[in-house]
Nucleic acid binder design. Structure first.
Length: 150
DNA sequence: GCCAACGTTGGC
DNA sequence: GCCAACGTTGGC
């Protein structure tokens, strides 16, 4: 089982939305992030990160429910993730089914995450990291969960 | 709202 | 294949 971190703007889709019902994590339009989505397997867990909000941080944990599938939102002109260059014949983007596991009682803010030891390799903390899907090692996972529960 | 960093695009 | 221009991300 693998661990991941995925970002979402809570105004668009928050951990509370996920708590209400399982969802498809779609709209990822970056190849590196896409490649990580393709590596995910049912049973993997991910940290749900709230971005572009005040304060940004990790809000809880979700579960990957199945393997990546074509992201049809890229073909839908009404969808936020519409990609006019895509077609049914050429659809490079994927989505993964996800479900809620739990919300932290308090958000673990980015400012606090930056103070933790042992997260130097986490892409989230890199200079202006824009990667929205990234792997998390077992060690990093433990550090972050411990901080969230402290 | 600002802007730095980064990915993508497209001319050559 | 280079690289300048452009668009986007996302913290602050």
């Amino acid at each position: 089982m693998a661990y991941w971190l995925m970002k979402s703007e809570p105004d668009c889709f928050s951990i509370h939305d996920l708590a209400a019902k399982p969802a498809l994590w779609d709209g990822v339009r970056n190849y590196q992030a896409r490649n990580y989505l393709q590596q995910m397997q049912a049973g993997d867990l991910f940290l749900f990160y709230h971005s572009s909000c005040q304060p940004p941080g990790i809000a809880g944990i979700g579960c990957i429910d199945g393997p990546a599938q074509p992201d049809l939102s890229a073909l839908d002109p009404q969808a936020a993730g519409y990609d006019p260059r895509c077609s049914e014949q050429r659809l490079p983007w994927v989505a993964v089914p996800v479900s809620f596991q739990r919300a932290f009682t308090e958000l673990l803010p980015l400012a606090q995450i930056r103070t933790l030891q042992g997260l130097e390799e986490l892409p989230l903390l890199g200079r202006a990291s824009r990667l929205s899907v990234m792997p998390v090692s077992a060690e990093q996972w433990q550090i972050l969960l411990s901080a969230a529960q402290a």
